[in-house]
Design a protein around this nucleic acid. Structure first.
Lengths: 192, 192
DNA sequence: GAGATGGTAGACGGAGCTGTCTGTAGAATC
DNA sequence: GATTCTACAGACAGCTCCGTCTACCATCTC
């Protein structure tokens, strides 16, 4: 290609960065397009060129969250060592990290799903995220030698969801610690 | 008082019943006051007489959910027998019941908290609900003889939250079953 | 120079939102 | 009969929201 794609993508990036911050803090429905425009210092036409519908921006926001959160989850698992059974517990360090982060406001997917019509693309994307994460945990559980990897994955993602979702009420890091201990108990019981 | 309070409270009840249904399905922010008025067959002035602000209606909605959910939780625990350790597991039958219910849409408190400004009365009410429930579970854990009732209660309410909150994405009753099994494992481990 | 590209600035329409207000009507109470 | 209470019906103001549109500008390429 002769002309390189976007010179810097600076406008698009500013929009996404601003949307990420505002959508996470107040929920997509709680933030008007005009606010995103004002805070990102971009023209309205520019925003609508990159994201023809507000939902397109919401989807891009969810993709960004997915990258960040799923990435943190895998990194935490990796940091726990080579043993899958340790990784299943270690991934909960990502939850602890999230709880401690300033402006922590729970699970972006559950929060967004709660306000999205059931049939729409936005809701579907939130479900897709949870499915992908659970599949990854299931594979880890299989590698660890769990008799019923599906069940163990369900149990652990349930804990993750509970810890994350509850963050919208109370971001106490003690929650993450309780979740981690539960994970240890459940993993030990499943691999006995 | 000579004049009995409300002759039947029928208008107020219709408003509350309608708000309960619509708020739970779409979130308070997703339902306009006009819609509540139209669907409950009530005059606008009547609604604003009973609930001067929309937030007052939201608070009444949360109270209603609290009664229903906390009631179901205690009933499920009671049905599990007299032993506190069985009650700690049995309360998860309430989660299974919720999952199977038509129009199940996750945890009303988490969903509402996600869209409510952090400092407000609505957000505070959601936190209060979770606190009350956890206190009740803590007392149950203490009666069961847990070494660390606070921790066990955290762990179990985490499971409850995860199961409930995840319902906005996927109301599969298999979730409730996984939560129940986790609860059994955690309770057994804590009371060993 | 002509045109394409990507950006800024902001008006505008049509819709929906909350909350107020005026006016009417039935029923109970004094 | 007069008053009070409760409810119905609906117009209205003021705001926000989404998305479209016109106009202008800078840069780069042909």
């Amino acid at each position: 290609m002769p002309a390189q794609r976007t010179p810097a993508g600076s406008a698009r990036d500013r929009i996404l960065e601003t949307a990420f911050r505002l959508f996470y803090a107040h929920g997509p429905r709680g933030v008007g397009v005009d606010t995103v425009i004002a805070e990102s210092g971009v023209a309205k036409a520019t925003l609508y060129k990159h994201f023809p519908r507000k939902d397109d921006l919401v989807l891009a926001y969810l993709d960004r969250v997915d990258q960040a959160w799923f990435g943190a989850l895998r990194a935490a698992a990796r940091d726990a060592g080579d043993e899958p059974r340790d990784q299943l517990v270690g991934m909960f360090d990502a939850l602890a990290g999230a709880c401690r982060r300033d402006g922590y406001h729970g699970c972006a997917f559950i929060n967004t799903a709660a306000e999205s019509p059931a049939g729409g693309a936005v809701h579907a994307r939130t479900v897709e995220h949870k499915t992908v994460v659970r599949a990854w945990v299931t594979e880890l559980a299989r590698q660890a030698g769990a008799a019923d990897p599906e069940l163990l994955a369900r149990q652990l993602t349930l804990l993750l969801d509970g810890g994350l979702a509850g963050g919208v009420l109370d971001g106490d890091p003690v929650i993450a610690e309780a979740a981690r201990r539960s994970a240890r108990t459940l993993v030990d019981a499943a691999l006995r």
